Computed example of a mutant assay.
Amino acid sequence: MTTPLKIVSWNINSVRFRLDIVEQFLREMAPDILCLQETKVVDQDFPTDSFRALGYTHIVLHGQKMHHGVAIVSKVPLVEDDRFDWQANQEARHVGVRLESGLRIENVYVPAGGDVPDRAVNPKFGQKLDFLERMTQWSQGLTVPTVLVGDLNIAPLESDVWSHKQLLKTVSHTPIEVAAIDRLKASNSWVDLGRHFFPAPARLHTWWSYRSVDWTVNDRGRRLDHMWATADVAAKATRHHVYEECRSWLKPSDHVPIMTEFAI
Score class of each variant (00 low, 15 high):
Met1Trp: 09
Thr3Gln: 14
Thr3Phe: 02
Thr3Pro: 09
Trp10Glu: 01
Trp10Met: 07
Asn11Cys: 13
Ile12His: 02
Ile12Glu: 06
Ser14Trp: 06
Arg16Glu: 06
Phe17Gly: 00
Arg18Cys: 02
Ile21Thr: 13
Val22Asp: 04
Phe25Leu: 03
Met29Ile: 13
Met29Trp: 05
Met29Tyr: 07
Ala30Arg: 14
Ala30Asp: 13
Ala30Asn: 12
Asp32Thr: 05
Ile33Leu: 12
Leu34Arg: 04
Leu34Ile: 08
Gln37Met: 07
Gln37Lys: 09
Pro47Ala: 00
Gly55Met: 08
Tyr56Lys: 02
Tyr56Leu: 05
His58Val: 04
Gly63Gln: 02
Lys65Arg: 15
Lys65Ile: 10
Met66Cys: 07
His67Arg: 14
His68Ser: 10
Gly69Phe: 11
Ala71Phe: 03
Ile72Glu: 13
Ser74Asn: 08
Val79Ser: 03
Glu80Met: 04
Asp81Val: 00
Asp81Ser: 15
Asp82Ile: 09
Trp86Ala: 03
His94Val: 05
Val95His: 02
Val95Thr: 14
Gly96Phe: 01
Val97His: 00
Arg98Gln: 14
Leu99Lys: 06
Glu100Ile: 10
Arg104Phe: 10
Arg104Glu: 15
Ile105Glu: 11
Val108Ser: 10
Tyr109Gln: 09
Val110Cys: 07
Ala112Val: 12
Val116Lys: 13
Arg119Ser: 13
Ala120Ile: 09
Pro123Val: 10
Phe125Lys: 02
Asp130Glu: 15
Asp130His: 11
Phe131Gly: 04
Gln137Ser: 06
Thr143Gly: 07
Pro145Arg: 07
Gly150Ala: 01
Pro156Lys: 00
Leu157Ile: 06
Asp160Met: 09
Trp162Glu: 06
Ser163Gln: 03
Ser163Lys: 08
Lys165Gln: 14
Lys165Arg: 14
Lys165Ile: 11
Gln166Lys: 15
Gln166Leu: 14
Leu168Ala: 13
Val171Trp: 01
Val171Ser: 10
Val171Ala: 03
Val171Met: 06
Val178Lys: 06
Ile181Pro: 04
Asp182Val: 00
Asp182Leu: 09
Asp182His: 09
Arg183Glu: 15
Ser187Pro: 05
Asn188Ala: 11
Arg195Met: 12
Phe198Thr: 13
Phe198Gly: 10
Ala202Lys: 14
Leu204Lys: 13
His205Asp: 14
Thr206Glu: 02
Trp207Pro: 03
Trp207Leu: 06
Tyr210Arg: 09
Tyr210Asn: 07
Tyr210Val: 07
Ser212Gln: 14
Asp214Lys: 14
Thr216His: 14
Thr216Leu: 14
Thr216Met: 12
Asn218Tyr: 05
Gly221Lys: 10
Met227Leu: 14
Ala229Trp: 08
Thr230Ile: 07
Ala231Val: 13
Ala231Glu: 15
Val233Asn: 00
Ala234Ile: 05
Ala235Lys: 12
Arg239Cys: 10
His240Leu: 05
His240Lys: 03
Val242Met: 00
Tyr243Ala: 10
Glu245Ile: 06
Glu245Gly: 11
Ser248Val: 04
Trp249Asn: 02
Lys251His: 11
Lys251Asn: 15
Pro252Trp: 08
Val256Met: 02
Met259Gln: 15
Met259Asp: 02
Phe262Ala: 10
Ile264Glu: 12
